[in-house]
Design a protein around this nucleic acid. Structure first.
Length: 590
RNA sequence: GUCCCCGUAGCUCAGUUGGAUAGAGCGGCGGUUUCCUAAACCGCAGGUCGUGCGUUCGAAUCGCACCGGGGACACCA
């Protein structure tokens, strides 16, 4: 599916690939270009060629000869396409070596023509998707665990935009529920406007923790909290005013962190916005006869659909649950935005919840595709050396703001001697520090759990004062190097150059990576996997830096310089574009 | 107990959806700068792909079983 050749967009490598497939089909009657195209692989080592055709499946057309013999016969029959330099047999494979000039031309003409739009496609033209991400709980500080949903969601949002979709980014704030009964109850007992002003959300969290501990010993507290939540849900003015106050304080703090991360949302409607839509959703369920009572609660029985547990609509005390609000929200998003796809970027521990939710929604006839994009948990290693889920109540929370700040501090150590004014230093420290943190998260497959480790997150050598290895700063550094060379060049980049001059393996290595980009964007979007972009940018930067060491861009040879300037400017453009997809800035200098 | 995710070099991870000799980064050892940013580049060392069966011309990749880590399993979100 990710290699569906019917999806066409500016993917220059695919043109040469099609030529290769056509040449094989011409040599072996009966084969279909699309099939052969799909079977073409990239050899594990560029020294083995650019495209490889495995001969295992066409043995029957060669008298069931062993694959290596088939390869030899096929190679002899293939008419070499124009953009292919040579055709070689290696074991069961027929390998095609793209002509460096032809490869460079096909890639760079496309990249230059598309400009900043290179890599985008029109797959989703006219369609809308809603993506729910970040979605923190009010009255708890943003912890490092919130980083995952925020940056993965932001990445997916940008990827789908790059595929032509209209994307609505929703921050579904956790601003409703029994917790707020507890919080109000706690506030009535121990609240202090002064402390709240001083400590902000941290103070609200302390109140909740204190309440939870006290309530363990005295059940009367629980009852008080339930009463307060009921008042809140039935519109009690005093309760509502306090809730609004806590919400405002939290939001102000959250927005500061989002600004640091360069993340924004189209909608901030949280759970509370669906309180007045829950009854309508429940009525729809009732109209279809899907509701029932069980153990005092009001539920949707899902046992006929392979679920042991029912979907809870109302608790025994009539109070709503987050599932009820999620149900109202999913219907609203489909109807209000006309979305064909509803994406939820939420940790893997909620898989069951979303399976149930999606099932209930489909029983109501939801005609959109809901997708739970799950990701691994951020774990913390506790005092006994055991991994466990981070939890606000256990105090095992690392503040996101603190992590971001220490990243920025480290960059400041590096650039302290640069001859820049303070504003510029601050700007670059911010871009690079935040880039390090975001990339660290987005560079691994999203379903894997992560052990929180600040040291590892900010892989930093105090001796040389530098970030090392496969990091955000590595990509930014590569970008800055290229920017520097182009600044020095100082002239407009021409798209009309002699591509044959880009003849070295180093030139070809860079061009090949640039050519992969459109397919990378497509694959990363359809697999909801920003790390595909991250890995690609590492590969591209590796090629660029190897090139940088081995070759010169600016030289006395005007023709070669012009060609290499085009190559390098395209690479730089892809770096900036790819980093932007990940939500990472690309400073010109660092 | 049932279900889900993960297990690849000392550490952190890739592995083109079943193909060639399993690749990077960090850490270790050794190199590279009269020249566009050395936050870089090159080389060396380091692997029974958790274990065992099976499917296949071919398995890190698919199936089954087991081991280890994490998570979920109705009135929290």
């Amino acid at each position: 599916m990710t290699r569906d050749p019917s999806i066409t967009f500016a993917a220059p490598m695919n043109e040469i690939r099609t030529e290769v497939a056509a040449s094989i089909v011409a040599a072996v009657p009966g084969l279909v270009v699309a099939d052969v195209y799909r079977q073409l692989e990239s050899p594990p080592d560029p020294a083995m060629g650019d495209f490889a055709f495995p001969c295992f499946t066409i043995r029957d057309r060669f008298g069931n000869a062993p694959p290596p013999a088939v390869a030899t016969q096929l190679a002899a029959k293939v008419a070499r396409p124009a953009s292919i330099l040579k055709v070689e047999t290696k074991g069961p494979y027929v390998n095609f070596f793209a002509d460096p000039g032809a490869l460079a031309k096909s890639v760079l003409v496309a990249a230059h023509a598309a400009g900043e739009g290179y890599g985008r496609n029109e797959m989703g033209k006219g369609e809308t998707v809603v993506i729910d991400f970040s979605s923190p709980n009010i009255a708890k500080p943003l912890g490092i665990a919130h980083l995952r949903s925020t940056v993965i969601g932001n990445g997916i949002r940008r990827l789908w935009q790059a595929c032509g979709y209209t994307v609505i980014g929703v921050n579904h704030l956790g601003d409703w529920g029994t917790n707020f009964g507890k919080l109000i109850s706690a506030w009535k007992k121990w609240g202090s406007e002064e402390e709240l002003k001083l400590k902000g959300v941290e103070f609200l969290k302390d109140l909740l923790v204190k309440f939870t501990e006290t309530a363990k010993l005295d059940p009367a507290y629980q009852q008080d909290a339930r009463d307060w939540f009921r008042k809140l849900e039935t519109g009690d003015a005093a309760a509502k005013a306090l809730w609004q106050h806590f919400r405002d304080i939290s939001l102000t703090e959250f927005k500061r962190v989002y600004a640091l991360l360069n993340v924004d949302f189209d909608s901030w409607s949280g759970e509370s916005d669906y309180v007045d839509k829950m009854d309508a959703a429940i009525k729809e369920l009732e109209a279809k006869g899907l509701t029932s009572h069980s153990e005092g609660a009001y539920v949707v029985d899902l046992s006929a659909h392979g679920f042991k547990e029912p979907f809870l609509l109302r608790k025994a005390d009539e109070a709503s649950l987050y599932g009820t609000r999620d149900l109202a929200a999913i219907l609203y998003r489909r109807r209000h935005y006309g979305a064909k796809k509803l994406i939820y970027v939420v940790a893997a521990d909620q898989k069951l919840h979303f399976k149930q939710l999606f099932k209930v929604a489909s029983l109501l006839g939801l005609d959109a595709e809901p997708v739970h994009v799950d990701f691994g948990l951020m774990r913390i290693v506790n005092a006994e050396g055991q991994r466990e889920k981070m939890a606000t109540r256990k105090g095992t929370i690392v503040l996101l703001q603190d992590v971001l700040q220490s990243a920025i501090d480290r960059v400041n150590e590096i650039i302290v001697d640069r001859e820049w004014d303070e504003a510029k230093k601050a700007r670059i420290a911010h871009a690079v520090g935040i880039g390090a943190v975001i990339f660290n998260d987005l560079s691994r497959t999203r379903t894997k759990d992560i052990d929180f480790n600040l040291q590892q997150m900010l892989d930093f050598d105090p001796e040389t004062k530098a970030f090392k290895g496969e990091t955000g700063p590595y990509l930014q550094y590569t970008f800055a190097r290229l920017s520097s060379a182009l600044r020095k060049y100082g002239k407009p980049v021409s798209g009309e150059v002699d591509f044959k001059l880009l003849a070295t393996d180093d030139d070809k290595g860079v061009a090949r990576q640039i050519g992969r980009y459109p397919q990378i964007v497509h694959d990363a979007a359809t697999r909801y996997e920003p790390s595909i972009v991250s890995r690609f940018l590492i590969d591209l930067s590796g090629e660029v830096n190897r090139f940088w060491k081995q070759q010169r861009i600016l030289s006395d040879d005007a023709g070669l310089t012009a060609a290499r300037v085009l190559l390098v400017s395209s690479a730089r453009q892809v770096l900036r574009s790819g980093l932007a997809l990940l939500g990472i800035e690309a400073p010109e200098e660092m």
